[in-house]
């Protein structure tokens, strides 16, 4: 293994580790909320991170096997958060946690 191949390997491994870390941080935001819309944004970013992770895998193994999956995610990754933004967020309003709920009450009073 030459020096360059070694560098490539280190860079790609670091990339995968960073994508995993990003996913973990995303889970934190998913857990914290506070509103359904935050989670919708998280859903979008999750799709992006999965595409990025599969891309890193493809770069590592030089294998286009997972490209159709990435393509489908790029096509349809947005539908989930659109559905949340369109339908769930509206129903979610009365129980929205924390400050947003109080602001809501203040303004409508």
């Amino acid at each position: 293994m030459t020096v360059f191949e070694w560098i490539d390997r280190v860079l790609l491994t670091a990339a995968v580790v960073m994508i995993l870390l990003a996913g973990a941080l995303l889970l934190v935001r998913l857990w914290l909320g506070p509103s359904m819309l935050d989670r919708a944004i998280c859903l979008d970013v999750t799709a992006a991170l999965i595409i990025a992770g599969l891309g890193a895998q493809a770069a590592f193994s030089r294998d286009p096997f997972y490209f159709p999956i990435m393509l489908v995610l790029a096509f349809l990754g947005f539908t989930g958060s659109v559905a949340i933004a369109r339908f769930i967020a509206v129903r979610d309003r009365p129980t929205a946690a924390g400050r947003e709920a109080t602001v809501e009450e203040d303004r409508s009073a």
């Binding site: 560098i7 490539d8 860079l11 990339a15 960073m18 990003a22 941080l25 934190v28 998280c42 990025a52």
Partner: peptide
Amino acid sequence: ADTVGAFLVFLGAAICLLGSIGLV
């Protein structure tokens, strides 16, 4: 090309991480 490609993948992953930090 291999090394530049690996570096770009690394950079993209770093940007993903920064975006997630911002999200939190």
